[in-house]
């Protein structure tokens, strides 16, 4: 049994949180090579694990060698609302539309932790209205991607919903496409910022 935190209270918390530095601010200080030397699949994984106390910044070859300055990181994540549900569920929310399936997936199963969720505040900072069909609400903890094939909604606790999804394959294809789009935007933004 978990309790719901009405928005009013969380909005107040959020205003304190919005002023803080986000994961993205620290990510910018990383090498972005995803070389894997540190034993992580990417620099972002390394950062997340560091925040969880599970890795040492000196295991990065760039930081260790001094080629890049080791960043000072003090990061506290925004508040989390709901623990994620597990598995995939197929929901038909209205009996009058039996062919329209809404697919709900939790993409962060088991690793639920203070950092194991989508940080919409960071996302908002990164994307900042750059993608026209992407809307992010840091206050609600929800991102929404509109697409012709089916809308995708992403929730901070790891739930992803694909509406109007015709079938499972199509739904995952949509998620994959959405994630690639987002990732490309992150990298483009970092490149643009470091060129300045």
């Amino acid at each position: 049994m978990y309790s719901w935190r009405p928005l009013r209270r969380s909005l107040k918390l959020l205003h304190e949180v919005l002023d803080m530095r986000t994961l993205y601010d620290y990510y910018k200080l990383f090498p972005h090579t995803d070389c894997g030397y540190c034993g992580n699949t990417s620099c972002l994984t390394m950062l997340r694990r560091y925040c969880l106390g599970n890795s040492d910044l000196n295991s990065c070859i760039y930081f260790k060698s001094g080629e890049r300055q080791t960043p000072k990181i003090s990061y506290s994540p925004p508040p989390l609302r709901l623990p994620p549900a597990e598995n995939i569920s197929y929901i038909r929310p209205c009996p009058s539309e039996p062919t329209k399936v809404t697919i709900e997936v939790n993409v962060l199963p088991k690793i639920h932790s203070p950092y194991g969720y989508f940080d919409m505040i960071t996302a908002d900072k990164i994307f900042d209205h750059q993608i026209s069909n992407l809307k992010i609400s840091p206050s609600l903890g929800i991102a929404r991607i509109e697409s012709e094939a089916g809308d995708v909604m992403i929730f901070s606790e790891g739930k992803v919903i694909i509406r109007r999804g015709a079938d499972e394959r199509r739904a995952f294809w949509e998620i994959g496409k959405a994630i690639r789009l987002l990732w490309a935007t992150v990298n483009r933004k970092i490149r643009a910022e470091s060129a300045q």
Partner: peptide, 10 residues
């Protein structure tokens, strides 16, 4: 449906 899910989750 999106509005309803957002109201519930948030």
């Amino acid at each position: 449906h999106d509005v309803a899910v957002a109201l519930d989750t948030a």
